[in-house]
Design a binder for these strands. Sequence first.
DNA 1: GTGAAAGCGCTAACAG
DNA 2: CTGTTAGCGCTTTCAC
Lengths: 339, 339
Amino acid sequence: MKKTLREVAKAAGVSVTTASTVLSGRVDLYRAATVHRVLKAAEELEYRPNLLAKALVQQRARTLGLVVERHQGLLSRNPYIIPIMDGILDYLIPREYSLVLISLQESSEETMSQRVFNSSIDAGIVVAPLEDSPLLQWHAHSPLPVVFVGCMSQETDAGACVDVDNEAGMRSLVEWLYAQGHREFGFMGGSQKQWSARLRKQSFLNVLLDYGIPARQEWMVEGDYTYDAGFWAGEQLLSASRLPSVVVVSNDLMAVSFMELCRAKGIVVPDQLSVTGFDGIDLGQHTSPTLTTVSQPLHEIGHIAAEWLLKGIDSGERVHGRKLLAPRLEIRESARVIQ
Amino acid sequence: MKKTLREVAKAAGVSVTTASTVLSGRVDLYRAATVHRVLKAAEELEYRPNLLAKALVQQRARTLGLVVERHQGLLSRNPYIIPIMDGILDYLIPREYSLVLISLQESSEETMSQRVFNSSIDAGIVVAPLEDSPLLQWHAHSPLPVVFVGCMSQETDAGACVDVDNEAGMRSLVEWLYAQGHREFGFMGGSQKQWSARLRKQSFLNVLLDYGIPARQEWMVEGDYTYDAGFWAGEQLLSASRLPSVVVVSNDLMAVSFMELCRAKGIVVPDQLSVTGFDGIDLGQHTSPTLTTVSQPLHEIGHIAAEWLLKGIDSGERVHGRKLLAPRLEIRESARVIQ
DNA sequence: GTGAAAGCGCTAACAG
DNA sequence: CTGTTAGCGCTTTCAC
């Protein structure tokens, strides 16, 4: 059924070594006639190399693992992962690497070891783990290269992370809002276990501080980045004695549901209340009003993560470094000028 | 560094065979003491089996491939794939199978063989290939089990497909529109190379026929399921001498951009024109107006495809059969009653 | 109950 | 230039 190298070698009348070498492209080592016989035999037999065997002997699976925790629900509920996947794949495909999806239902150390380090991957990309995730202790469990996306690894300098510059993004957004005349800021954050949520909140507060604007407690609420959170955290915020002029929401998904809540309550966005998001997911372009937000170069993040890992795999050197990519302020309809 | 079975065996003072057998769970074959020694050694050495080696010897990689063509662009542009992936993963994870993503930039027979059959998968799930895709000739190239999603395989009875019942879905939608008083139907189809697009269009026409409503040519346009197509195919439709009362769009993505086009042109949906979609992607719930559509049980489709394949792999029998899942009519805001 | 031996399909020294 | 030899780490008859 499935043809092996040995059969090709036999058909070509050469040794397995010769067949292997020729088929791996080092063609100049052999006589043209030999090369030709091998190539022809392989062609005729429709030979397909067994990558498993190759991986075993070379100790290299040519496969990366994309590890996502599912505390936030399914992939469908984490729309920002998809463009990252595209970026990874675009880099991997021409280099003949594969991507396996590792989705952790619960991320105990146990499951992590089982599912992540048992899988035959050469390296991993970990997306947005929570602060207490065992995934952050990756290197304590495995020598495999890893790049963290959407967070900074705890480890002093051993880790590698690529992320959007959350601080710069939040700053540019708030400064822009200030320039539009906003002076009363509400904020809906994400779980403080989420690295990006902490940074965004901190940065928001810093900018307010710079402007000498006090952060009013009843306008500060905390959700968990999920669609549902926009509603329940939103309810809390809207119950304040008075509304701010703008609510800065820490991610797009919550911003979208928060806008829906506003509509349901008869609060017109942006006329009565401005709302902004963060991430730049596609959805924000289709809501009404469209969402003013800070967009992440997600495709590029995936690309860079993959690039670093392949380099690390090839060189055998540890992958480390931190790269913060520039965010882009997307000015759309959900935030308005205050006279 | 990485511990092997041999080291475990040595540490436990048993043979590799014994260690292998014990660790594979057939514990009753050995003396309790032996079992215990092996287990303890494995634990202490933090032994992780090399799945590559296991796969090689068992001729089973415990991996499924999700194959998508990229004629429609990146994954980010095919939002319906994500819930399918979730469905597959939910089935695979507890069964210790992995999922690798195979995204074909161009699907010549060449790349298909290279990328699909070269990858170490035990079976494949092919999502919505075009009519002329070599992927449909899967069995001519490989004995591996495959399930087609979102299309029927050409092969007489050899193939396996799971899909939403496009005909029933379209019928229920059009019948509902008729019941709302609509008599003038426009239609924006997908590429006729796409199986689902053909079915949906045919079914649409059939229902009109049943009602004795003529299909007016200037109200029939064809896009290609992409976001952009909603605009260009939409332009064409809106240039008709007169507008229908409703435009039935063949997928949600085009319906969304078509609604945006209408808004840009000052045509109020649904007051001046009703619009409906098909697929039930999340986006449709967040547009304004929200999109009336026919939703597919995508998670279930993924689940069933994975289930069939694992059964096929285990039994060694060819996977075949066709399963059409019931669609659900989602009545939202974009289509209205005609007095 | 347990172990020796063979081999999955391939690559990589090392001879010749 | 080409072939022989030795494994990669594991499972699996088949003896003992």
